[in-house]
Design a protein around this nucleic acid. Structure first.
Lengths: 191, 191
DNA sequence: CGGTAGGGATAGGGTTCT
DNA sequence: TAGAACCCTATCCCTACC
């Protein structure tokens, strides 16, 4: 066709984000039909929207889909790539950090620091909300279940998640409505 | 990592070319899966095929990717690098030459000839077919659109392209099938 | 048939190696 | 230094499942 790879413009991306905030994720056709966005997104399909949103989400969390796939999960599938989540005192998320411990044996990589800062509970919470993709956002319990299902967690993860949800809501990163959490516009907008 | 740059053997290159002729460009996985080639190309990935084909194509056209990048494009992005295509009577492509005119004002370069022979319509047509990468080749209209999009053209470019397509098809450089054009084996083989 | 989710392939820019 | 080989990831495509 004419366009070998049609890169997304900032305007289109903004419109998509606004559309998701207004209609929720998974409502790609609805967003496209909304007169508020359909002029900007004229040249995009519902599938394009879905793909772009996936890309935005995953990039914000992990840097790329590939990294997300590598980072996410692991415990059950392959012991050599397992990632263990631990939280340490005194971090930037209210006294908690999440670290990824490199697998015990494994790679012929050059010497790395024993622990590399990898991601925080906050990021995992955002990931949970993104991946659970409930129409109006998951509730706290679902978020916790998601995290416990996908990561090896420490015993007091519940307390940690609860306090982080409160903090993120106060900070404006999350929006809480009827016990459900969704990601705020400003966060996805790249704030 | 493991692989210290695995150079392409002539056999592999031949298999790749045959695969492209059979399945078209952009069908890298398909080519890999074809029992006719998958023994020779066993150690290559679909991405490897794509990269190698790019090297082959771009080398045939411009000498290298770097040169191609310098030569290609200009009009829309930056006026100072704009390339103007004109055709002159009495050339080697049926009475037509394509020239690249240096930008009007611009560079502090040493004095250049007013017009430097740049490339011919034929090469641009080959480039168009290569870059448009339609499964069975683009039709004439698409080729014309590509050229008009990427170059500043003279008014009668349509007529020129049409006649060149006819010529190149007769000459065996292109293969025409159902109004679509693809590059012939012999051309890519370096003929 | 129309829509979405998800896996997977491709395109094209960038990087490394020789 | 250039060019071949290779890497990264945004975009696009395909299929399964409603």
């Amino acid at each position: 066709m004419g366009a070998p790879k049609q890169k997304w413009t900032p305007e289109e991306e903004t419109a998509l984000k606004a559309g998701v905030i207004k209609h929720g994720t998974g409502k790609w056709r609805t967003i496209l039909s909304d007169p508020e966005y359909n002029s900007v997104l004229k040249s995009r399909s519902n599938v394009d929207l879905k793909d772009k949103w996936r890309n935005i989400s995953v990039t914000a969390l992990w840097g790329s889909r590939k990294k997300a796939k590598l980072a996410l999960k692991g415990p059950s599938s392959s012991s050599s790539t397992a990632i263990t989540i631990v939280s340490l005192a005194n971090g930037d998320d209210g006294g908690q950090h999440i670290y990824a411990l490199p697998p015990p044996a494994a790679s012929s990589e050059p010497p790395r620091p024993f622990q590399v800062p990898f991601t925080s509970v906050d990021k995992i919470i955002i990931e949970a909300i993104t991946n659970l993709k409930k129409p109006f956002g998951p509730d706290g319990k679902s978020i916790l279940r998601y995290i416990e299902k996908n990561y090896k967690t420490q015993p007091d993860m519940k307390r940690l998640v609860t306090s982080r949800l409160k903090y993120l809501t106060n900070a404006g990163t999350l929006i809480k409505l009827k016990h459900r959490y969704r990601i705020s516009p400003s966060y996805m907008a790249g704030g």
